[in-house]
Computed example of a mutant assay.
Amino acid sequence: MTEFEQLWDWRQKIANLYYEIRSTADPEGAWRIWCDTRETLFRTHPQSPIELADRGAFTGPVTFPYDPALRLIVRTAPAHPERRTVSTGADGEVSMGAFARTEGLQAKFGGELTLYWIEGYGGGVFLPFTDATSGKETYGGGRYLFDTIKGADLGNVRPDGTLLLDFNFSYFPSCAYSSRYVCPLSPSANALKSALRAGERHR
């Protein structure tokens, strides 16, 4: 396959993975599928962010144990209008606008989270965050929960206005693994004061 066909295949596999997650009734079972599938992709797929020379010894992304207490249903409200433009190296710039803000995380985690709509053709939802583990137990630039352009989609806002945030599916951006990537990092508005020990972590 050409490089573009490999990337197409990677995107399709990620999209299929998240479809399976959304279709699985058991949240922890869905998380195990997520962990196992990502381990295989990171070790074997040509588009893995792991450097080719390191893939043979790579045993997959490491995660905290599944914590059902960090699977939350929250309400959202319109966000204060904000537009951000982020450099992504050779790929140019990515522009995004805030469109929603969570309600209900402050008391437990010391902050709320802004959801961004990535502008440009098609667009997509982007939800990065940092917490008290960032730069210590997890990647300092933060983790992603949603990046729907790349297929990372746990589900949208429900008819009653609530949103599922399952932090067990938080993951590192590709730039955490390789300098080949330049990724949008989490803005200061999405800094949670508590430690969310769920999702991907350092070894």
Rank of each mutant, 00 (worst) to 15 (best):
F4R: 11
F4V: 08
W10T: 07
K13Y: 00
K13N: 09
Y18P: 01
S23P: 00
T24G: 02
P27D: 04
C35F: 04
T37R: 14
P46R: 03
P49C: 11
I50L: 03
A53G: 12
D54M: 13
D54N: 15
A57R: 15
T59E: 15
T63P: 04
P65M: 05
P65V: 03
Y66V: 05
L70G: 01
A79Y: 06
P81W: 10
R83P: 06
V86N: 01
G89D: 07
A90F: 09
D91R: 08
G92Q: 12
E93A: 08
E93K: 09
G97S: 15
G97E: 14
A98K: 13
F99P: 02
F99Q: 10
A100W: 03
R101V: 10
G104T: 11
Q106D: 14
T114H: 01
T114V: 14
V125D: 02
G135H: 10
E137Q: 10
Y139N: 04
G142R: 06
L145Q: 01
G155V: 08
D160Y: 01
D160V: 02
L164G: 02
N168P: 15
S170H: 07
F172V: 04
C175T: 04
S179C: 01
V182G: 07
C183H: 11
A189Q: 13
A189E: 15
K193H: 10
L196T: 07
E200F: 05
H202K: 11
